[in-house]
């Protein structure tokens, strides 16, 4: 290995709690690793599992989903829907050979900049331990893009 593995993480935030927690982490100069890149949604309820699959298929090593704490959703209870989708998605990902730890849901209120930074820190380290996901290679190995014959199988 020439360079140490630096996991690339996509984070989804809601506009009201977790994005503001990220803002607060910034204004309070909390440090966390630069491996995460955030996408703002209005609500964790907007999180379409398609986004997570696209992120993983497109080269992300992990996905962090964040939203308001249950009971504190700006849209009352849409984060419950996010939780339900996340728990089902995790089962699907396990079947697809993706370690469930690569996709995590974290609740962070607008006041929890420190907590969000710490969660990002922990998540980056966990994905680093899991190693690269490298989905394009999973598919391209005799996959859709590159129909090379597979390695031989002998009895």
């Amino acid at each position: 290995m020439s360079e140490p593995f630096e996991p690339l993480i996509i984070g989804f935030t809601c506009n009201w709690c977790s994005y503001r927690a990220a803002d607060l982490a910034g204004t309070s100069r909390e440090k966390y690793p630069p491996n995460i890149r955030l996408i703002r949604l209005m609500c964790s309820g907007r999180l379409d599992p398609t986004f997570v699959l696209k992120a993983l298929a497109g080269g992300a090593d992990g996905v962090l989903i964040t939203g308001c704490h249950p009971g504190e959703c700006h849209y009352l209870e849409q984060n419950f829907k996010a939780l339900r989708r996340y728990l089902l998605l995790r089962r699907l990902l396990t079947q697809m050979g993706v370690e469930p730890a690569r996709v995590r849901l974290v609740w962070a209120s607008a006041a929890e900049g420190v907590r969000l930074a710490a969660e990002i820190d922990r998540f980056v380290e966990e994905v680093r331990r899991l190693g690269p996901l490298n989905w394009p290679a999973v598919v391209s190995e005799n996959g859709a893009e590159m129909p090379e014959p597979a390695t031989e199988v002998t009895a």
Partner: peptide, 15 residues
């Protein structure tokens, strides 16, 4: 599907 297949035995593209 987006993932197209499952990942078996660790990382893709490796022996």
């Amino acid at each position: 599907s987006i993932l197209k297949r499952a990942r078996v035995n660790g990382n893709g593209g490796k022996p």
